[in-house]
Write a protein that binds this DNA or RNA. Structure first.
Length: 307
RNA sequence: GGCGGGAUAGCUCAGUCGGUAGAGCAGGGGACUGAAAAUCCCUGUGUCGCCAGUUCGAUUCUGGCUCCUGCCA
């Protein structure tokens, strides 16, 4: 256990209104926001990642937002190291960290920890480049089938997983499946976690509405600049929804409406994946039906923090 | 108006040398320990445009009709 201060956690799919609720909690409870979002880490991706605006950030300190250029690579491991430091610092100053975001894997790694497996990003990048097409993927499978059957059985159709497995195997001579502990998950610190749930159609409508607003309020211009700065070939930030699609619109390949539809669809699919993650991977979390009265939410959270 | 091409899953289309049909995308479900807004897995019955004819049997052949679409006028 890192510390025994119970920490409020607000999780939810994209466009669920989590940032507003977390901001409200932080203001009412003398807290500071710790963002759990893999894309808000990057500078220059503001509108597209629905980052809190300056006015909101002036009300309450926000952490782990805008911490690096999108040409840099951040991964879960680094995220957890940074988040541990930030949370420790906030607590030391007598404030309450309020975790808020939508990146499930970051939440899980932060709350439950990662097994202390070795990592070598240079090696991983090398393997990734080596096995990056259909033919070489078959070679990778064949290699793993012989060398590391346990991981092959588990991930035979998943190139990424096999690459990480091969990375760990190369470094340790052991299967990653063998090295990962299977014991029941144990929280690294106490939490009062909430997942914001909307009716399906309502969430979908919110996503469509927000996408339209984002496009009208400068996202296209932002994307144009980001593309000029190389976001589409960046190590991780290129995955952010929308930028590549807007690039196709700017290149005249698709119409404005098609662009809009593609972004909404991509965002909706993302929201679905988030929901299955939060429902399945976080037994500690309590589901909250939205919309919720923010004062009720605050009260509920205050009680949970006492208990 | 003439000559073609088309009409099949929500969308784009393949196919059935006559025995009621299948891909991609979308949709739905799931996984997830160092790229996670990523990646991967599972999931497809629809009057095969309408009406008649031939046939044991037609979505598939024939005729007519309707609607798209291309070229020529």
């Amino acid at each position: 256990m890192l510390h025994n201060q119970k920490i409020p956690v607000v999780m939810g799919p994209t466009a669920s209104g989590k940032s507003d609720l977390a901001l409200f909690l932080a203001r009412e409870m003398d807290g500071e926001i710790v963002s759990v979002d893999s894309m808000q880490l990057y500078q220059g991706l503001d509108i597209g990642t629905a980052k809190p605006i300056a006015a909101e950030r002036n009300l309450v300190p926000h952490h782990l937002i805008d911490i690096c250029s999108f040409n840099q690579r951040i991964d879960v491991y680094q995220y957890v190291e940074m988040a541990d430091r930030v949370i420790g610092d906030i607590l030391r100053r007598g404030k309450l960290p309020v975790l808020c975001g939508g990146t499930g894997m970051y939440f899980k790694a932060l709350m439950y920890g990662l097994d202390p497996l070795p990592g070598d990003s240079a090696l991983r990048a090398e393997l990734d480049a080596k096995y990056d097409n259909d033919a070489s993927f078959e070679e990778l499978k064949e290699l793993m089938r012989k060398q590391d059957p346990a991981d092959y059985e588990r991930w035979y159709s998943h190139r990424r997983k096999l690459i990480r497995a091969l990375e760990v195997f190369t470094l340790t001579g052991k299967s990653i499946t063998e090295l990962q502990t299977n014991k029941l998950p144990e929280l690294r610190f106490p939490v009062a976690a909430r997942v914001l749930l909307w009716d399906r159609d309502e969430l979908r409508a919110r996503i469509a509405l927000r996408t339209g607003k984002m496009l009208e309020s400068g996202w296209i211009e932002e994307a144009k600049e980001a593309i000029a700065s190389g976001i589409l070939t960046s190590p991780t930030a290129h995955q952010a929804i929308g930028y590549r699609i807007i690039g196709r619109y700017l290149a005249g390949e698709i119409t404005y409406d098609q662009m809009c539809e593609l972004i909404i669809t991509g965002t909706w699919q993302y929201a679905r994946r988030q929901l299955t993650w939060f429902k399945r991977q976080h037994p500690e979390a309590e589901m909250v039906d939205m919309p919720v009265d923010r004062n009720d939410f605050l009260l509920n959270m205050k009680n949970a923090l006492k208990g």
